[in-house]
Amino acid sequence: MTKKIGLYFGTFNPIHVGHLIIANHLAEFSDLDEVWFVVTPHNPHKIKKTLLEDHHRLTMVRIAVEDYPKLHASNVEFDLPQPNYTVNTLAYLEEKYSEKNFCLIMGEDNLKSFQKWKNYEVILERYSIYVYPRISEGTVETQFNNHKKIKKVDAPIIELSSTFIRNGIKSGKNIKPMLSSEVWKYLDEMNFYK
């Protein structure tokens, strides 16, 4: 039987409980068999002081998903040419794992700007997109409403961001409940975001 894999892209800088809640919800309450956290590499052309090195972010995702058999960490984009586009990653994965059926996971905020993505029509034609709710400005393009490839998922709305967590750490706040305990331990030991 072909496994249906949901691809959840992000910098995960750091991965937090909101990411885990969304991914686990999709793995447990949709027809997806697994969810892969695809860690987006640092764009070498952009200086982003707050973005941890790729291997640290990947390590945190691996630590975070350890107890979830349906959730996995993926570094697939680390070896692909930069800048990377989702359409290229999807094509690469499809070729490498021809026995799997890949889908895209995105927040409703991303769907609102989806028409700006490189080759978005190709993505829409070839892959299902699972959209979880987000509170955000703007509206979804009419062409994406009731589209047969776009599945709106009734997942919990999580208003938590990695930026909020990084800022909290920097200003000495206790953000421990927002991260899995193992990720918190790793961040704390490494003195990240301070």
Results as ranks from 00 to 15, higher is better:
residue 78 F to C: 03
residue 46 K to I: 00
residue 163 T to K: 11
residue 185 K to P: 04
residue 53 E to Q: 13
residue 23 A to I: 04
residue 179 L to R: 08
residue 45 H to A: 10
residue 175 I to N: 12
residue 108 E to Q: 13
residue 151 K to Y: 15
residue 105 I to R: 04
residue 169 I to L: 15
residue 37 F to T: 07
residue 118 K to L: 13
residue 120 Y to C: 09
residue 140 V to P: 08
residue 138 G to D: 09
residue 117 W to R: 09
residue 102 F to Q: 02
residue 61 V to D: 00
residue 112 K to N: 05
residue 99 E to N: 15
residue 99 E to C: 07
residue 48 K to H: 13
residue 169 I to F: 12
residue 90 L to A: 09
residue 188 D to Q: 14
residue 35 V to A: 07
residue 17 V to S: 03
residue 42 H to C: 05
residue 57 R to S: 03
residue 61 V to S: 00
residue 49 K to W: 04
residue 170 K to G: 09
residue 70 K to E: 12
residue 23 A to P: 05
residue 49 K to L: 12
residue 142 T to Y: 08
residue 106 M to F: 06
residue 82 Q to Y: 04
residue 120 Y to E: 09
residue 84 N to Q: 12
residue 171 S to G: 07
residue 159 E to A: 11
residue 111 L to E: 05
residue 4 K to T: 11
residue 166 R to M: 06
residue 112 K to E: 05
residue 155 A to S: 15
residue 152 K to F: 15
residue 66 E to H: 11
residue 26 L to Q: 05
residue 60 M to W: 01
residue 15 I to C: 02
residue 99 E to F: 12
residue 34 E to C: 07
residue 169 I to D: 09
residue 180 S to R: 11
residue 1 M to C: 14
residue 26 L to E: 03
residue 102 F to N: 02
residue 76 V to P: 01
residue 83 P to A: 09
residue 156 P to F: 10
residue 163 T to Q: 08
residue 110 N to K: 11
residue 53 E to L: 04
residue 106 M to Q: 08
residue 60 M to A: 06
residue 85 Y to F: 15
residue 100 K to C: 14
residue 183 V to W: 05
residue 4 K to D: 08
residue 6 G to F: 01
residue 123 I to R: 07
residue 131 V to T: 02
residue 113 S to N: 14
residue 45 H to R: 11
residue 147 H to D: 10
residue 115 Q to P: 03
residue 111 L to A: 07
residue 47 I to Q: 13
residue 42 H to W: 05
residue 190 M to S: 12
residue 178 M to W: 14
residue 117 W to C: 07
residue 85 Y to A: 02
residue 105 I to Y: 04
residue 185 K to H: 13
residue 143 Q to M: 15
residue 108 E to F: 04
residue 64 A to Y: 02
residue 24 N to L: 10
residue 30 S to L: 09
residue 120 Y to A: 06
residue 130 Y to L: 10
residue 180 S to C: 09
residue 14 P to L: 00
residue 168 G to R: 08
residue 22 I to M: 04
residue 180 S to P: 10
residue 59 T to V: 07
residue 6 G to V: 02
residue 107 G to Y: 03
residue 120 Y to I: 04
residue 113 S to E: 13
residue 161 S to D: 00
residue 7 L to R: 00
residue 42 H to N: 15
residue 143 Q to Y: 12
residue 39 V to Y: 00
residue 70 K to M: 09
residue 104 L to C: 08
residue 147 H to I: 07
residue 23 A to H: 05
residue 186 Y to P: 02
residue 180 S to A: 10
residue 22 I to Y: 03
residue 146 N to Q: 13
residue 139 T to S: 14
residue 151 K to V: 15
residue 109 D to W: 05
residue 86 T to A: 04
residue 9 F to T: 00
residue 156 P to W: 09
residue 121 E to W: 04
residue 146 N to H: 13
residue 18 G to E: 02
residue 6 G to W: 00
residue 73 A to N: 03
